[in-house]
Each structure stands twice: as C-alpha cells, then as structure tokens.
C-alpha cells in the first residue's frame, strides 16, 4: 500500500478522537496523537482496536508501545499486512 493511501485510510479512524481539529487538518507522518492531536490516552486503545478491525490484523504489546504517532501506526500496519 502506498503511503498516501495508508494515511487516507488512517485519517477517518483517528478523526473521531481528535481534540485539536486544526492540527488534524495538517496531519502528516510526523503528527503525534497526544502532543499534536490532543487525543486522550484512553482513546489510543480505541484507535488500536479500530486499526485492527480495519486492516484485519492484531497488534501485540510491543506494537502498542510505539503507537504514539502517525509514523509508528503506518509502520506497524505496513509490517502486519505484509505478513
């Protein structure tokens, strides 16, 4: 999957939990879920579950540990769907 395509799939998953709409408009690989989008940490698990459902994958603890920004989410999904 191309990077742009992957970001386009992740955006609607992330959007419901965003608390800084302005930062979401400028979402890029470098966007941080907590520092930039002000997503509540309790909702990070929802993003993880939504990603699992969307891509039909399961994230392990060590994958979850990294799930703090768009770049990490992209790399985890890319690795998992290639398996």
């Amino acid at each position: 999957m191309k990077k742009e395509e992957l970001i386009a799939k992740l955006k609607p998953i992330i959007e419901p939990y965003v608390q800084d709409a302005e930062a979401f408009k400028n979402l890029s690989e470098d966007t941080d879920f907590v520092n930039d989008l002000k997503i509540n940490s309790a909702n990070l698990v929802d993003i993880i579950l939504d990603i699992e459902d969307e891509f039909d994958i399961r994230l392990e603890n060590e994958d979850m540990e990294q799930m703090l920004d768009v770049k990490s989410a992209m790399s985890i999904v890319t690795t998992k769907i290639s398996k």
Binding site: Y17, N40, A42, N43, V45, D46, I48, L49, E52, M64
Partner: peptide, 22 residues
Amino acid sequence: LVDLNEALRTSNWQRDRFLNKI
C-alpha cells in the same frame, strides 16, 4: 483524573477486546 461523564461519552469499555488490551 477521569471525568466520568466524559468517559461515558467518549469511551466504551465494553467493546470487543478493550479490556484485554489494557
């Protein structure tokens, strides 16, 4: 701090796999 009304509104702890993840 957890605002319980906010938690009720924005999280669903009963969703599938939620409890097992955390």
